[in-house]
Amino acid sequence: MSTIPTTGEKTAATVAKNYLRQFKGWQLISLRVNDSDPRATDQEQLEHTRAISELKARQHIVTAVGKVDQASGIILDQRFIKRRRTKTTLAELAANHYQITEGNFYHRQRKALLMAYKLMH
């Protein structure tokens, strides 16, 4: 039985992955306008504020997952926020005393994405 009531696990993991990957785009939008720029239009300020809110929402999800399972939080942060490769993420996990094989890594990544999906809804 699926732990995700509204959709299949594969779809839920994909939705969470896409949501977290949007971090970089929101980060770029947030950098367009400086908070103290008096020349910024209202629309630019609104976009900046929304971008900051979206960034915080994604960071909050990664932090919340990390509190439940630190390895899952590291995986989400490295893979989808910082956009690091699998080998780099495995090295970061090893630096935090998590010895995960590459074969088991994808299972753990899916678990982390499902945890993130639950927090998104």
Rank of each mutant, 00 (worst) to 15 (best):
H48W: 06
K67F: 15
G73F: 02
L31C: 02
T88H: 13
H97S: 15
K10G: 15
K56A: 13
A95E: 15
A57M: 10
M120E: 05
R39S: 13
L46Q: 09
R108N: 06
T88K: 11
H48R: 10
R108P: 01
N104Q: 07
I61E: 04
R58C: 04
K118V: 05
E92C: 07
R58S: 06
I4M: 07
L20E: 02
K10S: 14
I29M: 08
D37F: 02
W26T: 00
T86I: 15
F23L: 03
S72P: 00
E54V: 00
T88S: 11
A64N: 07
Q27E: 11
I75A: 14
Y106K: 14
G25A: 09
A51T: 02
L31A: 04
I4W: 03
K118D: 07
T41S: 15
I52Q: 15
Q27F: 04
D37G: 08
G66V: 11
H97E: 13
F105E: 01
E102K: 06
H97M: 13
N104P: 00
Y117S: 03
S53H: 07
Q59A: 12
A71S: 12
A12L: 12
S72V: 00
A91G: 09
Q70A: 13
V15H: 10
A112K: 00
Q59H: 12
S2N: 14
I74F: 01
I61P: 01
R110G: 09
A94S: 05
K17R: 14
T101I: 09
K111P: 14
A71E: 05
R58G: 04
K17G: 12
L31N: 03
T63A: 05
T11W: 07
R85P: 02
M1N: 15
H97T: 14
R50A: 11
G73A: 08
A64V: 10
R58H: 04
Q78W: 00
A95N: 13
Q22T: 07
G73Q: 04
T89F: 01
F80M: 07
R84H: 08
P5E: 12
Q109C: 10
F105A: 01
I75Y: 12
G66Y: 10
Q22R: 10
R85T: 11
L119W: 01
L46K: 06
Q99Y: 11
R84I: 05
T86S: 07
T7M: 14
T88R: 10
A12K: 10
L31Y: 00
P38N: 10
L28I: 01
A64S: 11
E47V: 04
A116K: 00
R83K: 12
Q45A: 13
D37P: 03
V33L: 15
I74S: 02
Q27A: 06
R32W: 10
F105Y: 08
T49R: 12
G103A: 02
L46P: 00
E92P: 02
